[in-house]
Amino acid sequence: MRGMEMSLNQTQKLRLQRALELLETLSSGINSNSSVTVADTIPVNQEDGVLKGHGTTELEGEVVATVCGVIERVNKLVYVRTLRARYKPEVGDIIVGRVAPKRWRLEINFSQDAVLMLSSMNLPDGIQRRRTAVDELNMRSIFEDDDVICAEVRDFMRDGSLQLQARSQKYGKLERGQMLTISPYLIKRRKQHFHHLDQYGIDLILGCNGFIWVGEHVETKDNMIEEEPIKPDPQNNKSKTSMSLEEEEQTYTPLETRQNICRIANAIRVLSTLGFSITIDVILDVVDLSISKGLDIHEMLGAEFSVLVAEREAERRNSSTRRKR
């Protein structure tokens, strides 16, 4: 709930408060009393033996938290899960990142930049072969500084740095869309991180690192090789700069799609300021809500809408818990 700088009027304040209280009562059963701050002692049963995980340390025979967060217990393991911390990568995570200057290093909201090796991504021509020195020289024609890229976490190097791979058509450069940055804890790991929203003609990538891509839908598979904005040979690359009108028309994103991109992006923004975890269902629900209320895109960031979203989310969780009972 941080960063809420909206000016709520009195009724809105009350409604928001009520919604949040309801949410709190719904969640209190799960982890009541388990939040800690730095230097708090974590109660453990010493006889059973404890495994100290992240965010804990031992002091005078007691397990003490080193970060602020929520205590999590898995069998013997005790660790503290922080809210609002940087992204902690795991192998297999799908992430969205931005190319930092020099080398193919990606800014991914981790404590270091991640490395994407040329050898661990598909070449634009789609042929499997050994990478030559020429390929290395042409790396810049594939990704440039500040390009947004989608990739997968491959493994950790011994020194703690991260290796990525993009060995599939679905990974690679992202164009014609928006990248949003939210707290990574709001995105849970799931089976699906790529979503194609057919009704809006939009691709949505929920990167585990808190970077979200909302962009125009790109057909993969068949015309990938033609559509690939990066041309393998330098001749084609030169022609890219002097784009003909026809080509420009091809790459033009229709206004409707742009509006849809903005609407979905704003839905995510509202959810992240309210601190709700972000899944595809919730996003679509918020988008539908905004459309059914006939709100303009810019009105979605206003106070009234966020109160509405909070109420709706409270209602939704309330009904789902009731159903379980």
Binding site: V38, T66, V67, C68, T82, L83, R84
Partner: peptide
């Protein structure tokens, strides 16, 4: 620092 979730010995 506590807000940033950086591990510390103590406040």
């Amino acid at each position: 620092l506590a807000d940033a979730g950086i591990p510390m010995r103590d406040l």
